[in-house]
C-alpha cells in the first residue's frame, strides 16, 4: 500500500513537471535597408539564427533584411522595454563586403535571440553563409555561393558556382557553373541547367548523390563508391557499377567527379 502511495505521488508530480513558468516570450520584428550598389559579396553568420534562414537574389542594388527576434522576460512590461532596444543594420566595408549586424543596448541582451531572418541582396553578389543546424534557402542568385553548415538542409538556386558543405543535412538545388558539394549522411541532388558549367565535384558518405546534367556536353565522368551502386545514364551512354565508372562522353572535357562510401550515385540528363 505504501509503495502505491509513493507511486501516486511520483506520477502526480510528473504530471506537474516539464514546464518553465513565470517566463514571458515576446517576438519583435526589425527591418534593415542599405544601398547595395557596388557590393561584391555578402556574409551571414546564420549559426545564431534559431530557425530558417533565406536569401533572395534581386535585380536591384539593395540590401534588405527582415528579422524576427525572440526574447524571454520575467514580465510583459519588461519584455516590451527590452524589445524596444533591438536594432539591426547593414555594414559595408572598404572591400565592398556587406554584413548584417543585429544588436541590443541594455543589460538584458542575454535574453534576446534571433528566430528567423529573410534577406534580399543583389543577385550578382557572391554569398557566404556560415551556419550550424538551421536550414538555409538561397534563391535567385547569379553570383557564387559558399554555404557551410553541420546538420542544415540547404536549398539553393544560383547561376554561379557552388561551394556547399553540410554533414547530416540534405542539399538540393541548381547551379549554373558547377562547383563542389559535400555532405556526410544527407543526400545531394544537384541540377546543372546550363551547358556552360565548368566542373562538378560531389562527395558523400552514406547519402545518395543525384546529378542532372544537360545533354550534348563533352564530359569526363569519374564516379566511385565503396558500398553503393552507380548508375550513369547520360546521352547515349548507360553504365552501372558497384565500384567505379570512368568514361568520356561526347569526347570528354568537363570533369564530373562523384564519390561516396555507401551512398548510391545516379547521374543522368
Amino acid at each position: 500500500m505504501k509503495n502505491f502511495f509513493y507511486l501516486f505521488i511520483f506520477i502526480f508530480g510528473l504530471g506537474l513537471s516539464g514546464c518553465i513558468v513565470d517566463v514571458v516570450e515576446q517576438n519583435t520584428e526589425r527591418w534593415a535597408y542599405a544601398n547595395g550598389k557596388g557590393v561584391v559579396s555578402v556574409y551571414f553568420d546564420a549559426s545564431i539564427y534559431r530557425e530558417a534562414f533565406s536569401v533572395h537574389g534581386s535585380a536591384l542594388d539593395t540590401l534588405i533584411a527582415d528579422g524576427t527576434f525572440s526574447l524571454w522576460a520575467p514580465s510583459s512590461s519588461k519584455a516590451f522595454s527590452i524589445a524596444a532596444n533591438v536594432n539591426m543594420f547593414w555594414s559595408i566595408d572598404t572591400l565592398h563586403r556587406g554584413e548584417l549586424t543585429a544588436y541590443s543596448q541594455g543589460s538584458e541582451k542575454e535574453l534576446l535571440s534571433i528566430n528567423k531572418m529573410d534577406a534580399t541582396i543583389p543577385a550578382n553578389a557572391n554569398l557566404v553563409v556560415i551556419t550550424s543546424s538551421n536550414d538555409v534557402s538561397v534563391q535567385g542568385m547569379k553570383g557564387d555561393i559558399n554555404i557551410s553548415g553541420s546538420s542544415s538542409n540547404i536549398n539553393f538556386t544560383t547561376a554561379g558556382r557552388m561551394t556547399l558543405q553540410t554533414s547530416s543535412g540534405e542539399i538540393t538545388g541548381s547551379t549554373g557553373l558547377g562547383g563542389s558539394v559535400q555532405s556526410t549522411s544527407g543526400s545531394i541532388n544537384v541540377t546543372l541547367p546550363s551547358k556552360n558549367f565548368e566542373s562538378v565535384y560531389a562527395t558523400d558518405s552514406t547519402g545518395n548523390v543525384t546529378l542532372h546534367i544537360p545533354s550534348g556536353v563533352g564530359v569526363t565522368f569519374r564516379l566511385a563508391t565503396y558500398g553503393g551502386n552507380i548508375s550513369l545514364s547520360y546521352d547515349n551512354v548507360k553504365q552501372s557499377s558497384i565500384t567505379a565508372i570512368q568514361t568520356n562522353v561526347n569526347g570528354g572535357g568537363k570533369v564530373v567527379t562523384v564519390s561516396t562510401s555507401k551512398g548510391n550515385i545516379n547521374v543522368s540528363n
Binding site: 513537471s17 516539464g18 518553465i20 513565470d22 524571454w72 522576460a73 535574453l111
Partner: peptide, 11 residues
Amino acid sequence: ILPSSALIAAF
C-alpha cells in the same frame, strides 16, 4: 537563457 525569477519544473 532564462530571466530572473523563472521557475523550472523539470523531469
